[in-house]
């Protein structure tokens, strides 16, 4: 008969063990994503049809002979209203996807009844969210690439500027977008009315961040609100780079502000997560839905 050891030999290298856990979470999340083949359809069609609704409306506003286009140019600094709308709606879609996928990842585990057992494993709990974010990052990368390619080649929309700078702008926006997602994921563990909350948060971005319009047309109090939202800055920076051909110095300030927001949202996200974790464990509500 084999003698069982008195002490279980857990992996001595804590970091390696955590990385291993994250790898397992990533594989699980990836399998979930690709299990439903409609994700390919969504990846190809949404980047095309969502901006299209606003683009066609803008076309109606421009008029049959584009008589109102100079007015738009005066307000935005560009004639390219299609590119202008594509960039704004792309950032909105990014935040929206993060809210649904990362923001609801823990809630979905809660609904499936697997959150409590996962919570009991000897793994850093934050890894559950990191795994979701990593898978999300891969799919969103394709989503962004598909958006630019579809509008470039199907609609001949000319995006200019340094591609490295565009990638940098997306990269510095990353912590803010995902920080909001993490905060959201933590809140819905307690509040539970997840779908309604997604509508409110993404609605905020839709109203205040200028996804289809320049912030200058907003009333004063709305302009003040928009300045506190990171999406405003990423939309403006990417528009400047891709539509006006701005260089690093021209968008440096927006990128620095985005980094600041990113730091703040990541800290808020982490503390919201640990606070909600402690609260839920104390009240025994982790397994409830």
């Amino acid at each position: 008969m084999t003698n069982l050891p008195n002490v279980l030999n857990l992996k001595p290298n804590r970091l390696l063990a955590e990385l291993n856990a994250i790898r397992a979470i990533v594989i699980k999340q990836w399998l979930h994503t690709v299990r439903y083949p409609t994700w390919v359809l969504q990846l190809l069609i949404w980047p095309l049809i969502f901006p299209a609704a606003y683009i066609l409306t803008a076309r109606a506003f421009a008029g049959p002979e584009q008589i109102a286009l100079p007015v738009f140019n005066a307000a935005t600094g560009t004639d390219n209203y299609i590119g202008y709308i594509v960039i704004g709606t792309l950032i909105w879609m990014w935040q929206n996807i993060v809210l649904w996928n990362v923001g609801l990842s823990l809630r979905e585990e809660q609904l499936r009844g697997t959150l409590e057992s996962n919570w009991l494993t000897p793994v850093w709990r934050f890894s559950l969210l990191i795994g979701s974010i990593l898978v999300q990052t891969v799919t969103i990368f394709f989503f962004i690439a598909v958006t630019f390619l579809e509008y470039r080649f199907l609609f001949q929309i000319h995006f200019q500027g340094n591609i490295g700078l565009v990638i940098l702008a997306f990269a510095v926006a990353f912590p803010s977008i995902y920080g909001i997602g993490i905060t959201f994921a933590s809140l819905v563990l307690r509040i539970k009315e997840a779908n309604s909350l997604v509508h409110f948060v993404r609605g905020f971005v839709m109203i205040f961040c200028g996804i289809t319009f320049p912030i200058s047309v907003l009333p004063g109090w709305m302009k003040s609100v928009s300045q506190w939202l990171p999406q405003t800055y990423v939309i403006r920076a990417i528009r400047e780079i891709t539509l006006v051909g701005a260089d690093f110095n021209m968008v440096k300030q927006d990128l620095l502000i985005l980094l600041g927001f990113g730091f703040i949202w990541m800290v808020i996200g982490y503390f919201a997560f640990t606070f909600m974790d402690r609260l839920s464990r104390r009240s025994g509500s982790i397994g409830q839905y």
Binding site: G63, T76, T212
Partner: peptide
């Protein structure tokens, strides 16, 4: 909420509060 971006988009195309391009279509 969904109306808001269109409302402000219309403002970006309007002069003195008049959406003339839109009027030419409708």
């Amino acid at each position: 909420i969904w109306l808001a971006p269109i409302f402000f988009l219309g403002k970006a195309f309007s002069q003195n509060g008049e959406a003339l391009g839109f009027a030419a279509y409708t």
